[in-house]
Design a protein around this nucleic acid. Sequence first.
RNA 1: GGAGGAAUGGCAGAGUGGUCGAAUGCGGCAGUCUUGAAAACUGUUGAGGGUCACACCUCCGGGGGUUCGAAUCCCUCUUCCUCCGCCA
Length: 423
Amino acid sequence: MLQLQAIREHKEEIIDALKKRAIEATSLIEEVSRLDEERRALQTQLDATLAESNKLSKEIGMLFKSGKAQEANAIKVKTGVLKEESKKLGETLNQTAESLQAALYQIPNVPHPSVPAGASEADNEEVFREGAIPDLATDALPHWELAKKHDIIDFELGVKITGAGFPVYKGKGARLQRALISYFLDKNNEAGYTEMQVPHLVNEASGLGTGQLPDKEGQMYHVGEDDLYLIPTAEVPVTNLMRDELLNETDFPICYTAYTPCFRREAGSYGAHVRGLNRLHQFDKVEIVRIEHPDRSYEALDGMVEHVKGILRELQLPFRILRLCGGDLGFTSALTYDFEVFSTAQDRWLEISSVSNFETYQANRLKMRYKDEQGKSRLAHTLNGSSLALPRVLAGILENYQTKESIQIPEVLVPYCGFTHID
RNA sequence: GGAGGAAUGGCAGAGUGGUCGAAUGCGGCAGUCUUGAAAACUGUUGAGGGUCACACCUCCGGGGGUUCGAAUCCCUCUUCCUCCGCCA
């Protein structure tokens, strides 16, 4: 959620910057401004009424104490009127505040100056590329066929017990998954991220805090009976750890990493591009989250990008980094870098990590603040990134490391797996 | 699931229906002392709205009610603690 003060002070700049997202926000922003002014006017009116009422109440107290009950009762008539008045004003004020909130929820974050304008992923900007694309045999297989050939992932079995998009990992497939999780967590720990184990279900307040609600409830599994949501990413529980916290400057940076399964309904996405591991309802991911001082958040973002780079280098997977254009940028993000691994057998790039700076957008909803040198409370910056998402890394490994008869295990993973190849 | 108790500032913890945004301690900040630090002493220190700045308003877990007036009384929800039941 954008800060009202920012909208008051930089209305034109914000409207202008949002054009990069290929949206025209003028009317929404104007609506917010109007409601904001209305709300403040009502608040002032209500405050004055309450002030008057408070004053009279005190007088009544004094009069009763000195035995002047008759005078006191005379004033009571006045306070009765004021009470009616403030009740009405309060109701109008609440309605206006709710409308204001609703309008604010509809405005996405303002893109960072470096974000290229654009309507779709076609306008994303490649900023980095590394790693040789392996020269595979012409009959190289996509991962879903490799998975079947080596009997390491069973999609049909998942369909039987749950439904499409819930694969069952078997034998060395399952062990490779576990190896990847441990390896990622170890790398993140080494880089200073504190490992956390968090709940996989969250309440509504958490979903609102990181911005999955109120807009994207269709993407989350909802447990109606208990009104809880299955997490679509560890970002939600981990970032919400600091919700409603008032931090000190010396607390920064706060760096967390967590492994969790992620649950996504992915309503309406079917077809060839979602085959195999490309898009799942349940998948594993290791996430990194940072809470930063506003002055250092972009430095931190660069650090996170370098960190993820280092992991992909060790895995020796060919990858590229994209700076997302406005149209492809997530609703809450100010700047996002996507990492993509080249899947040789599918001849396409697969997104495996997304590293973002949300600036104060999430912190504003989360009421995540810190005290600055002057003792003023200010909003912190939140960042997160996948480090890394398992299925597509697995797809990349299977496809890029395949030989005629087996799949080699990347060297760094061998100590974690306990085997050197899958045959 | 059943029966009791509790929820107060960054933390701990008092609180009589009006003078309570709230004692006290710890912590934080500033100062005195010191070569410096620690200790001690002095002062200061909740959050949000609003204002150029004041004024003023709101907030004692959430919501509602009683009252001229609620941290304090009532209802309700949530959470935590104790006991019982069930149980990985």
